[in-house]
């Protein structure tokens, strides 16, 4: 039990890091990581939506779609739930913290099309997922593990975002070839980060 929890945490944060190993949520990773501060707020927003989305989609799939044999509607249901959650979150943030709302700007609605969120929802219901997080059988999988995974996948996402934000703040000031400016140099930086994270998969 404790072992499983630790495996889930390590996998979600490092060895199966959403951005650097699984390639999910690359768009915000490249788009919003220009500054550490915006990276943090984007990361927190994504984490929040991930957990909320999993909280709804996992029971929906397990207890409604599967018994009714309409699994094929999963994508439509999932994306709808995520869109609704994002809309809700947007309204709440707008009310509570207009300044935060300003920083997130265009990227908050874009969380809907952030594949990391749909990715978590799809992964935790996937047949092979239980093994991914160190469970012996699919039957052992439950909502709590799914939520834990979603939470730490979001934190892993935040971690990669923040690291990238810090790097890019420095890269911006460097004299580099014109054609390497922007995305290319960011990709090369991401390449080195991915190499560092690759080591976690070897443990």
């Amino acid at each position: 039990m404790l072992g499983t929890i630790i495996t889930i945490i390590v996998a979600a944060l490092f060895s199966q890091n959403f951005i650097l190993v699984k390639f999910l949520g690359i768009c915000p990773f490249l788009g919003v990581s220009k500054k550490t501060s915006s990276s943090v707020s984007m990361g927190i927003a994504v984490t929040l939506v991930m957990v909320l989305a999993t909280l709804v989609t996992y029971p929906l799939y397990e207890y409604i779609l599967v018994p009714l044999k309409i699994e094929y509607l999963e994508i439509i249901f999932f994306i709808f739930i995520i869109a609704a959650l994002v809309q809700m979150l947007e309204k709440i943030i707008e009310k509570l913290s207009p300044s935060l709302y300003q920083t997130m700007g265009i990227y908050l609605p874009l969380i809907t099309t952030n594949c990391a969120i749909l990715g978590v929802a799809e992964l935790v219901i996937g047949s092979g997922f239980y093994a991914d997080i160190g469970l012996a059988a699919a039957a052992d999988m439950n909502l709590w593990f799914a939520l834990l995974y979603a939470l730490f996948a979001g934190l892993g996402f935040t971690l990669a975002m923040v690291l990238m934000g810090g790097m890019r703040e420095r890269i911006e000031k460097l004299p580099i070839a014109k054609c390497m400016k922007g995305f290319p140099i960011t990709m090369v930086a991401a390449c080195f980060m991915a190499m560092a994270f690759y080591v976690f998969t070897l443990i």
Binding site: L20, F183, P184, M187, A194, M195
Partner: peptide, 22 residues
Amino acid sequence: TSSAGAFFVYGMCIALFTLISN
């Protein structure tokens, strides 16, 4: 074939594309 290589190749391709299109 690793994830790091994916970032690297992608970055280089964008750089080359930008260079040529410029």
